[in-house]
């Protein structure tokens, strides 16, 4: 790889979300992959990003307030009755 096509750790960590979401352009993607192949530190952070995303998926979704639910259901019934 030529010197001016290389990319630093500090730059790579800013691109990890875009990398994981498949949003990098082909040129940048190639540079990021070449960097990751030779850098344990950035590979570690990448794997921790993956794990962060996976663990976040385990959060439970909050409940809707019961009063609000009843109000909305009533509004839905009224709409149906009126249409």
């Amino acid at each position: 790889m030529s010197v001016d096509a290389s990319i630093s750790c500090q730059e790579v960590v800013e691109l990890l979300s875009a990398y994981l979401d498949g949003e990098l352009d082909p040129f940048t993607l190639e540079r990021v992959e070449a960097h990751l192949a030779g850098c344990d530190g950035c590979t570690m952070v990448l794997e921790e990003f993956r794990e962060t995303i996976r663990l976040s998926g385990g959060l439970t979704v909050e409940q809707v307030d019961e009063t609000q639910r009843r109000t909305l259901l009533e509004a839905f019934r009224n709409w149906r009755a009126g249409s």
């Binding site: 979704v61 909050e62 409940q63 809707v64 639910r69 909305l72 259901l73 839905f76 149906r80």
Partner: peptide, 18 residues
Amino acid sequence: GDETAFMMLVDELGPSMR
């Protein structure tokens, strides 16, 4: 006018919408 379908959406999206 399916109430179950409506409440399913309300439960799924409600907290974020608020």
